[in-house]
Amino acid sequence: MAAARQRWLVPIEPLFPLLVIGAAGLLMRWGVAKYQRYENDGKPKRWSVDRWDRRMMERDSRLTGNVNVQQAEVEAPKAFLTNSAWELERPFM
């Protein structure tokens, strides 16, 4: 009597849910990356931002109203004279 050959059956029931979960994860990753680019005016997300970068971002925000837009004018606009960072820090009363 010859031994019957056994086949190794792969359970296919969990493959579709795993595929759906993986596709949802990739879609979310793509969506978050697109939103971060949209929020940053089409530029990639900033990383490794140090104190100097934060100060320059604050300066750009006060000059142009947006942290992502820089201004290369030689002289600052007149509104920049009264637009000080010190006004942002009010004492707690």
Results as ranks from 00 to 15, higher is better:
Ser84Trp: 06
Asn40Gly: 01
Pro91Gln: 12
Arg59Gly: 01
Leu81Lys: 14
Pro17Asp: 06
Leu19Tyr: 09
Arg59Ala: 02
Trp8Asn: 14
Gly25Pro: 00
Glu39Trp: 05
Asn66Met: 09
Phe80Leu: 13
Lys43His: 07
Lys43Gln: 08
Val69Lys: 12
Ala2Val: 15
Arg37Val: 03
Arg59Ser: 02
Arg46Ser: 01
Glu39Gln: 10
Val20Ala: 07
Pro17Asn: 03
Arg29Ala: 11
Ala79Tyr: 15
Met1Pro: 02
Gln36Trp: 03
Gln6Glu: 14
Leu18Gln: 09
Met57His: 02
Trp86Gln: 13
Ala85Lys: 07
Tyr38Glu: 12
Asp50Glu: 06
Glu73Gln: 11
Leu63Asn: 01
Trp86Asp: 13
Ser61Lys: 01
Tyr35His: 09
Asp41Ser: 08
Pro44Ser: 06
Ala79Trp: 14
Arg62Cys: 01
Pro44Glu: 06
Gly25Leu: 05
Pro91Asp: 11
Met56Trp: 11
Asp53Glu: 08
Asn68Trp: 03
Arg54Gly: 02
Arg90Gly: 01
Ile21Pro: 00
Pro91Lys: 04
Val67Phe: 01
Gly25Val: 00
Met93Val: 03
Ala76Trp: 13
Gly22Leu: 10
Ser48Pro: 00
Arg62Thr: 04
Lys78Cys: 11
Ile21Ala: 13
Ala23Lys: 00
Lys43Val: 06
Ala85Val: 15
Glu13Ala: 10
Trp47Met: 00
Asn66Gly: 03
Arg54Asp: 07
Thr64Lys: 04
Pro77Ile: 02
Ala23Trp: 05
Gly25Asp: 01
Val49Pro: 03
Ala2Lys: 14
Asn83Lys: 14
Arg54Thr: 03
Arg7Thr: 14
Gln70Val: 08
Pro77Trp: 09
Phe92Gln: 04
Phe92Glu: 06
Arg37His: 09
Asn68Thr: 03
Pro77Phe: 04
Val74Leu: 11
Val10Asp: 05
Glu87Cys: 07
Arg29Pro: 01
Gln6Phe: 14
Asp53Thr: 13
Ser84Thr: 15
Tyr38Trp: 12
Arg5Lys: 15
Val69Glu: 11
Arg5Gly: 12
Glu89Tyr: 09
Pro14Thr: 10
Leu18Tyr: 03
Trp52Glu: 12
Arg5Ala: 15
